[in-house]
C-alpha cells in the first residue's frame, strides 16, 4: 500500500484546504478512498439505512497533483481506504486558507510511523538557501477490504424536482435568518424554475421565493415528466445541516444543483472544475 502526491500550485493547495475544511464542519470522521485517478472523501450519515453516504466528494488527482505514485492493497483491488478525522487534517492545512499564504509545495504521503499516518510535508519559501520544511502527521486507520462496500458510490436518487440554486451567499443569509425562527426548513421546487424556502414557527410563517432559476436537464426522467409543471415538490430538512453544507460556498462552485425527492431527501450537487461534492440530506419529517 503506497501513496504519495505532490502539489505545487498554490491555487490547488488552497482549494484542497477548503474542501477539507468543509468536511471538518460536516463530520467527525471521514473516509478517504484513493484510486489510481481520483481521491474520494466520504462521510456516512450515522443512522441512515444501509449507511448511505451523507457526503461524497470527488477530486481529480491529475488536477491537484503534479506527481502521484500509488499502489493499492493488491493488483486486483488497486485502491486504498483510510479513515481519518477531517478536523485534524483541516487544522494542518488551515494556514493555506488565508490569501497571503505562501508555500513552495505540499507533499502528501501515506507513511507508517508509530501508526499509519498521512504525512504532509510543506516546503516553505525562505530567503536563505536552506529550505524550511514543515511536517505534519495525521493519524489514519486503513480500512480492511470487507468494509469497503460501505463506501461505494451512491446512486442518483429518483428525484421529483431538480433546480440550480441561486448564489449560495444569498441563500445562506436567508437560511441563517430562518434558523433563528425554526429548526427545520422546507425546500420546495417546481419545474418552472421556482424555489421556495419556508419555515413555520409559533410566532411566524416565512417563505422566500426564488423565481426563474435555471434547471438542469436530465435524460433519466421517465413518466415523471408528465407531471404538472407548477406543482411544488418539497422536503423538510434540518436547518443546521443545510447551513453546514452552504458554508461550502468558499469552494466557489460554478453550479449547485438541488434535487428534491418528495418528503424523503434533498440531494445537493456542488460542481466545480475539479471538485464534485454531493451532499445527501435526509428529510427530517414529512411536511
Amino acid at each position: 500500500m503506497k501513496f504519495s502526491g505532490t502539489m505545487i500550485e498554490l491555487g490547488c493547495i488552497r482549494q484542497f484546504a477548503l474542501v477539507i475544511g468543509s468536511l471538518a464542519r460536516l463530520a467527525k470522521l471521514c473516509v478517504l478512498r484513493i484510486t489510481r485517478t481520483h481521491l474520494y472523501f466520504i462521510i456516512n450519515e450515522p443512522g441512515t439505512v444501509h449507511r448511505a453516504p451523507g457526503l461524497w466528494a470527488e477530486l481529480d488527482q491529475g488536477h491537484y497533483f503534479s506527481t502521484v505514485t500509488m499502489s493499492g492493497v493488491s493488483e486486483e483491488h488497486n485502491e486504498i481506504f483510510l479513515e481519518f478525522e477531517p478536523d485534524k487534517l483541516s487544522g494542518t492545512l488551515s494556514v493555506f486558507k488565508s490569501n497571503n499564504a505562501a508555500v513552495r509545495n505540499l507533499k502528501i504521503k501515506l507513511a507508517k510511523k508509530l501508526s499509519p499516518c498521512l504525512t504532509l510535508e510543506m516546503q516553505m519559501p525562505s530567503f536563505s538557501e536552506h529550505a524550511r520544511t514543515v511536517v505534519h502527521d495525521v493519524p489514519v486507520l486503513p480500512l480492511p477490504r470487507r468494509q469497503w462496500h460501505l463506501y461505494q458510490e451512491p446512486e442518483m436518487p429518483h428525484f421529483t424536482a431538480s433546480i440550480y440554486l441561486p448564489p449560495l451567499k444569498k441563500l445562506r443569509h436567508v437560511v441563517e435568518r430562518m434558523k433563528n425562527l425554526s429548526s427545520s426548513l422546507t425546500l420546495a421546487a417546481n419545474r418552472k424554475g421556482t424555489l421556495v424556502l419556508s419555515v413555520t414557527s409559533d410566532a411566524a410563517n416565512v417563505s422566500t421565493y426564488f423565481r426563474n432559476l435555471t434547471m438542469p436537464t436530465w435524460d433519466l426522467e421517465g413518466a415523471a415528466s408528465q407531471m404538472d409543471e407548477e406543482q411544488l415538490h418539497s422536503a423538510t430538512v434540518e436547518i443546521k445541516k443545510l447551513i453546514s453544507f452552504l458554508a461550502g460556498e468558499q469552494i466557489g462552485p460554478c453550479k449547485v444543483i438541488c434535487n428534491i425527492v418528495d418528503d424523503r431527501m434533498v440531494h445537493l450537487f456542488l460542481l466545480h472544475d475539479d471538485v464534485i461534492l454531493q451532499y445527501f440530506l435526509p428529510a427530517a419529517r414529512s411536511s
Binding site: P166, K170, V174, D202, A203, A204, N205, V206, S207, T208, Y209, F210, R211, N212
Partner: peptide, 19 residues
Amino acid sequence: YPLVLELEEDGVVTDCEIK
C-alpha cells in the same frame, strides 16, 4: 389577522406572516 410582510430584493420575494 397576522401582520403580513412582503420583502423584495432583486426579484427574490419573501412572504412573512407574523402572528
